[in-house]
Write a protein that binds this DNA or RNA. Structure first.
Lengths: 217, 217
DNA sequence: TTCCTATGTAACTATTTAGTTATTTAGCGG
DNA sequence: CCGCTAAATAACTAAATAGTTACATAGGAA
């Protein structure tokens, strides 16, 4: 006769904790989506690596696409929250800008999954982000922060005026983002390891220099 | 009784042309791989869009992965060939560098598939490129070209010395590459269309400025 | 103590997918 | 113009995959 219990032999039945299960699913989904992209990630694998059941993924998140959307929203929320903690208000414009450039670099270095998630979302023409309700509010503080630094720099007489906040922001992201996401083809094309301590130090210094030269009068 | 002919009713049997078939397969594969990534592209779809048969893909290219590898090698070959036609040898260093920056921008704009192919390859840690025999020779002219420009600029007294060719090359690529690949999330985050004529003009001018400020003494 | 529902498991399904096999035939060398 | 090989087609297979259904039960509310 079949056992009536669902739990495996020898294992105590799991204590129930909806919140913890959702967190484990989100963490596993983030790993898998960033490692393999939306198309390459497998729902079965996410369930297994979350130590959960596929049924729970559909129960809590609706579909693979909706799960991806939630992972992506959380990723944006996380980077914007980390940026907000920088507190650059009181600093001279140049110092503030350098801090922001170094922060961006460090965040990408420590959260490589953010980069591949964003890449995957762009491969899909940002259709998940487009339908996100929260994303506008999430990103607003970043625009204000950079605009403030630019304004302050002009008032201090150290930055040129008329600089576009978006162009600067995109360039700050670009010089770090591209280095990391393209480090594998880069290693082949330039025949060097992009991730040694020495290589990383050289690149972030170069990036700070690039951005400061860009804004200075 | 079943028809013995393989061709569809009413269609003349295809004239045989191995080279043309391979070209159609490569073109369709490039489109599909760049549109959906290595993981997202479907061999059946590639065959159909190539107006060919799946069997031919395996016959000529061995496997889906090998087909991707060939598409990628061709893509690198194409951009490097286009670069070689620039012929910057006789120009002043600043003019040559600006031409290279504008060329890179224009190439990415006209060949968006190159960007997504490279992204896909980096998601897979460049394992196809790593095992490519030709890729080293394909990329060598680029290094020489940029190193020559840097050397000439120093001799002319307009560029600083000690600049790393790789850092400059990566930055030239980064400021254009990132703008294009992240234009979808960018449109959401900055609430503007990245691809209007005006937006494109503003960005390329900004990029030229960024790079020239970076190298000037 | 007893229900009831949210939490959880496992087995199932319909479809898709990379890769193969069986077969046909165009077009060229002799 | 014969016969062979490379080019081409279509049908097939085994495995994988997103999503569903059927069922079990922990643990809180009544």
């Amino acid at each position: 006769m079949a056992r009536s219990m669902a739990a495996k032999d020898g294992e105590a039945p799991r204590t129930r904790d909806a919140e913890a299960t959702q967190k484990r699913i989100l963490a596993a989904a983030k790993r898998e989506f960033s490692r393999l992209g939306l198309g390459g990630a497998r729902v079965d694998d996410i369930a297994e690596k979350a130590n959960a059941n596929k049924r729970m993924i559909y129960h809590y998140f609706g579909s693979k696409e909706d799960l991806f959307k939630k992972v992506l929203e959380d990723a944006y929320q996380d980077i914007r929250a980390a940026e907000s903690k920088l507190d650059l208000k009181g600093l001279p414009a140049e110092t503030a800008l350098e801090k922001l450039v170094r922060f961006t670099w460090k965040y990408y270095l420590d959260h490589p999954e953010f980069l591949t998630l964003v890449n995957s979302e762009n491969l899909h023409k940002a259709r998940h982000l487009k339908s996100s309700q929260n994303i506008e509010a999430i990103n607003r503080p970043l625009h204000n922060m950079v605009q403030d630094i630019l304004d302050r720099g002009v008032r201090e007489g150290v930055f040129r005026s008329g600089l576009d906040e978006m162009q600067l922001n995109v360039t700050i992201a670009a010089v770090s983002y591209y280095y990391f996401t393209n480090r594998f083809t880069g290693a082949v094309v330039y025949k060097r390891d992009f991730m040694t301590e020495e290589a990383l130090r050289a690149r972030i210094d170069f990036n700070v220099d690039t951005i400061l030269r860009l804004v200075r009068v």
